[in-house]
Design a protein around this nucleic acid. Sequence first.
RNA 1: GCCAACGUAGCUCAGCCGGCUAGAGCACCUGAUUCGUAAUCAGGAGGUCACGGGUUCGAGUCCCGUCGUUGGCUCCA
Length: 613
Amino acid sequence: MEPIAIQKDDQIIDLQTAQAKNIDIESAKKIYPENTPEALEVIRHSTAHLMAQAIKELYPDAKFFVGPVVDEGFYYDFRVGEKIGEEDLKKIEKKMAEIAKRKLPIERYEISKAEAIEKFKDDDLKQEVLKSIPSDTVSIYKQGDFEDLCRGPHVPNTKYLKNFKLTRVAGAYLGGDETREMLTRIYGVAFADKQALKEYLTMLEEAKKRDHRKLGNELELFMFSEEVGAGLPIWLPKGARLRSKLEQLLFAAHRKRGYEPVRGPEILKSELWKKSGHYQNYKENMYFTEICDDESRKESCVEYGIKPMNCVGHIMIYKSKKRSYRELPLKLFEYGVVHRHEKSGVLHGLFRVREFTQDDAHIFCKPDQIKDIVIEVLGFVDEIMRSFDFSYEMEISTKPDKAIGSDEIWEIATNALKEALDENGHKYGIDEGGGAFYGPKIDIKITDAIGRKWQCGTIQVDFNLPERFELEFTDSDNEAKRPVMIHRAILGSFERFIGILTEHYAGEFPFFIAPTQVIFVPIGQDHVAYTKELAGKLTEMGVDSEIYDSKDSLNKRIRNAEKQKVPMVAIIGDKEVEARSLAIRDRREKIQYNLNEEEFFTKIKEKLSEVRF
RNA sequence: GCCAACGUAGCUCAGCCGGCUAGAGCACCUGAUUCGUAAUCAGGAGGUCACGGGUUCGAGUCCCGUCGUUGGCUCCA
């Protein structure tokens, strides 16, 4: 096998560059066309160029912007006169395969930036790319009569580019800037061999099967309605059962940790949103309504904002009486229903909606308590994530452009978060400028079944709102002092979290939250009475069960029960009624066994106690 | 919001290049069957083809607008 590139000091250098710069290939670490991260980077980058070449041959007027490698594949942004749809991908793929077969050598040469500006003077997109390059010389890669401005690295010949697939067409703003023109973007994947490509495509198919929108429909968990409006989920009985179990477990977990349940109103006067800063900073995402005492008098009208966050209500609760340092930290929590006017294009099943319920809490504390509180919350998060077998990572977000509060205040808050993470030995990333407008935050990102990352939990330090609302407590020295506020959510929202849970478990929820935990299938009518007796006992234990006693055949009913992906199906016939026992099909353990009544209820209790947050 | 695609029965989907009364499977209803571990048989009912407008002798099919959905971009729990 011939190498396609070499690696030196963690840098991938292609053979063309190595030759030009007289780097000794023999003594270097070689990269072969295999499915290693380094080789895939080279292959994918070159496949992006191959795609650009194919597009250029099919659409001669096409102009190209950038074509980088991303997770799993690559994309290229370009502009053409005509519309490109999914249909056209096949055509482009075919052309790519044809070009690859020409076995074109991929050559590299360097020119000065000034020469490049002259060379591409008729190409405004290339000028755009050149603007962002700081160095004086640029490299050009050439294959056949196609050439492109590129840093590399690339494979030496198009013959290495055989195992690719174009996956989707999309629009993308030039440079990611919403105010600029929208280019066409085509995404593709590429691998070193056929097998890896096939495995990847199979994985995508598998992922589709566990899509929470599909499963939500099949398992009757939730629905959306065009008549109701986009992004407004409707919870069906089974989804509501699941959600309610989650709510109850989490409620107890909060009480155990000293949180006080509270409840704020859904709409608050706009004046208050002006005081909090939401009116100035978050208005485009808020819904408003006007309430008039007397329709004929405009001055009797008051504008109200539907809450997009719960903090203001909790602040009012804090302010309801004079607070002592002895009360701090004061932890208020609420399953807060919030409304946010998200742009129509971003809505996505339960993952992104316009009305959702946060497991929200605000902790009012003294500045010197921040670190301990954050450490405690991190522990809470970890227990919940482990209960659901989730992996997650954390990221600190710092001051954004649009923010209230001084740099100094931001620095104090940001450092407190970092210290808490450091002290607990947590690894974390940093998202510069990614904070909320009122303070820095730690985001907890769950990795879902398909490897996508979702922001769920969040811990945000806030020095600003206490300032704006003039919050105080009387300290031990009898001085009035300002508390710090910590916003935090662990699931983030029930909607998103349940969407992620559904995909994570592919609809096979663990017993303690499954919408239906047991389905009874009586073989004949004579066995129904006994199943009703058992189901009644389960209801008393807080366990949801259903009895499949329709006129359908036994096989049909067992099939339907299994399709519901419930943890346990219990078949009841003459033998079971007589012995007061159950024949269990355990979907989670994938076995069948018989239990007597006592053993059954013991098993149920065991399964229920598998989780405690 | 922007780019692209899509919207036919409760669900999954056929319906050609515009041409007779818009089809299937599942689900639902009725009848027969009463069954030991993943689909019993027969019959029936269900659609203003998302909504509104236009082109045409004629529109599910072509065009425009609106709503919604999907994949991205920007944004975000």
